[in-house]
Amino acid sequence: MVENEKMKYGSLNRFVQAVTGLFLIFFLGVHLYVAHIDFRHPVAFFSSVINQLHNPWWLAFFLIFVYIITYHGINGLNHIVADTSISERAKRDIGIALMVIYVITIIYGTILALLVARMTVPA
């Protein structure tokens, strides 16, 4: 029974990982184009970033991007941990720690993006 639940959770987890991965193809494609080609500089300067984040649609885009890419990365790391030979208890503890890291990261990312969006470009 417990094994069945674990398998169901594992399948759902892999499915979510696949869906977030496909979303990231779109998000990362747009991000790489905008940040490295459209700004006509290999790395975006301060004013370019601030001006872009002043647009609420871009702000929403980046917030969703941060939530998805961090989830995909942390969840992927959790998959790697699950494949190691460490004890089930250690795997569970690391899983909880990774979840906490995810929550802290997205809270920090949200605060950072909102603060940056409120900044003005000096004349």
Partner: peptide, 20 residues
Amino acid sequence: SGLVILFYLYLHYTVLSNLL
């Protein structure tokens, strides 16, 4: 490659924090 990207992701967040 996933591990490399995850490491870079947090490095990227650190660099972006300098916007503040």
